[in-house]
Simulated assay, not measured.
Amino acid sequence: MKNNEKKSSICNCLNLRRAASTITKIYDEKLSPSGLTVSQYSILKHLKFFGPISVSDLAIKIRLDRTTLVRSFKPLEAASLIIDVSQKGTRNRQLQLTQKGIEKYIEAEYLWNDAQNFIEQELGKENIEKLTSLLSVIERLGS
């Protein structure tokens, strides 16, 4: 085995986590000129599409843990990319993109597409389709 070859584990979970980590790293590197991570970009993208939206509804729509999502909002709010537009005194936050957030999303969209294209070129369209199908099956296992 060559030094740069990585051996798969017998553990499916570990193999999936390693692959997810690699994919995340690729997207984060491609998005780095925008100052966003892939997680932050995804939030901006979904807020642009759904916003204004409650935190709970957003978590359901993008199928992420609410607590994890809330942690991801902090740097976006600090950078004035998202804002809570809920009525004063209400407990249910309603988030939406600011104008600065829309501009940042547009800036990052090109970089995100570059990451998408890179992954598709490396894996091939047919393998991407298989991967997407398998990941959907895996996700349904938890339902």
Rank of each mutant, 00 (worst) to 15 (best):
S9W: 03
F49V: 12
L134P: 03
E129S: 15
C11N: 15
D84C: 00
S32C: 06
I102Y: 05
E139Q: 11
E129T: 13
G142W: 11
E109N: 12
L97Q: 04
D28V: 00
K100T: 12
L81N: 00
N92R: 15
L69C: 00
A79M: 10
K74T: 12
I62D: 04
E120C: 06
D65L: 01
Q40A: 12
A78W: 06
T68V: 11
A115K: 03
I106S: 07
D28E: 03
L111E: 05
N117A: 04
F118A: 03
R63V: 14
K6P: 07
T22F: 08
F49A: 14
Q87L: 10
T37D: 02
D84E: 06
L111H: 01
S86K: 09
E122T: 10
L58R: 00
T67Q: 13
K7F: 09
Q99H: 14
L44W: 07
P33C: 09
F49H: 13
N15A: 00
R71T: 11
C11E: 13
I128A: 00
V38Y: 06
S21I: 08
A78S: 13
K61W: 04
D114I: 02
I53Y: 05
I60Q: 13
Q121D: 13
A59H: 05
E126D: 13
E139L: 11
T132Q: 11
E109S: 15
E122W: 03
K88G: 04
L58T: 03
S8N: 10
N15W: 02
S133W: 09
S39Q: 09
S133L: 14
S80Y: 06
Q40L: 05
L31H: 02
L76Q: 06
A19P: 02
L44C: 05
E29H: 02
Q96N: 12
E109A: 08
L44G: 04
T22I: 14
P52T: 06
K130H: 07
T98H: 02
D84K: 00
I10P: 11
I43H: 01
L76G: 03
F118Y: 15
L76S: 01
R17F: 10
L141K: 07
G51R: 05
L16S: 08
I10C: 08
V137R: 06
K30D: 08
R63D: 10
N127I: 09
K48P: 02
I60C: 05
A59I: 10
Q121M: 12
E77K: 08
V55K: 04
L36E: 01
